Amino acid sequence: MKLGLLSAAVALLAATTAYSADVYQPEPAPMMDAPEVVVSEASGWYLRGDIGYSFNDMKGANYFQGSNSNRVDFDSADLDDSFLLGAGVGYQVNNYLRTDVTFDYLTRADFNGSTSGSCGVADDCTSSDKTSMTVYSLLANAYVDLGTYGSVTPYVGAGIGGSYVKWKDLHNTSCDTADSTNCDPTYDHDGKGSWRLTYALMAGASIDVTCNIKADVGYRFRHISGGDMFGYNLGGGPGEDKGFNMHEARVGARYAFGGCDQPAPYEPPPADIVYK
Rank of each mutant, 00 (worst) to 15 (best):
266 Y>W: 15
127 S>L: 11
127 S>H: 07
12 L>K: 03
100 D>E: 15
98 R>V: 10
107 T>E: 11
266 Y>K: 01
186 T>S: 02
265 P>D: 14
72 V>R: 01
66 G>H: 07
67 S>G: 08
201 L>I: 14
48 R>I: 09
93 V>I: 15
220 R>Q: 08
161 G>N: 09
91 Y>G: 13
206 S>D: 02
198 T>C: 00
243 G>A: 15
167 W>L: 11
236 G>D: 15
2 K>Q: 02
266 Y>C: 01
272 D>L: 12
140 A>K: 08
129 D>K: 05
50 D>V: 07
275 Y>Q: 13
196 R>I: 07
161 G>R: 00
17 T>P: 02
77 A>M: 08
91 Y>T: 14
83 F>Q: 08
229 M>T: 09
90 G>K: 01
19 Y>P: 03
242 K>C: 08
110 D>H: 06
192 K>Y: 06
207 I>L: 14
258 G>S: 15
95 N>I: 14
193 G>T: 09
80 D>Q: 00
83 F>Y: 15
122 A>S: 13
253 A>C: 14
150 G>Y: 05
172 N>K: 03
230 F>K: 04
42 A>Q: 12
40 S>Y: 13
127 S>W: 04
214 K>M: 00
113 G>M: 11
179 D>F: 04
186 T>N: 04
12 L>Y: 05
15 A>I: 10
139 L>K: 00
186 T>D: 07
95 N>A: 07
238 P>D: 15
73 D>Y: 10
133 M>P: 04
124 D>K: 02
273 I>V: 15
75 D>H: 13
153 T>D: 08
42 A>C: 07
139 L>F: 03
117 G>P: 01
135 V>D: 01
117 G>I: 13
232 Y>F: 04
236 G>R: 07
252 G>Y: 13
184 D>R: 01
211 C>M: 11
69 S>A: 13
161 G>K: 09
209 V>T: 12
184 D>P: 10
57 D>K: 03
135 V>I: 05
141 N>T: 09
65 Q>M: 09
1 M>T: 12
106 L>K: 05
80 D>W: 03
100 D>I: 00
128 S>W: 06
97 L>D: 12
234 L>C: 05
115 T>M: 08
30 P>N: 10
25 Q>W: 03
169 D>R: 00
230 F>E: 11
186 T>A: 11
22 D>E: 12
231 G>F: 03
215 A>M: 14
62 N>E: 10
158 A>L: 11
88 G>R: 10
276 K>L: 14
166 K>T: 12
220 R>G: 00
222 R>Q: 10
115 T>I: 12
167 W>T: 10
188 D>C: 05
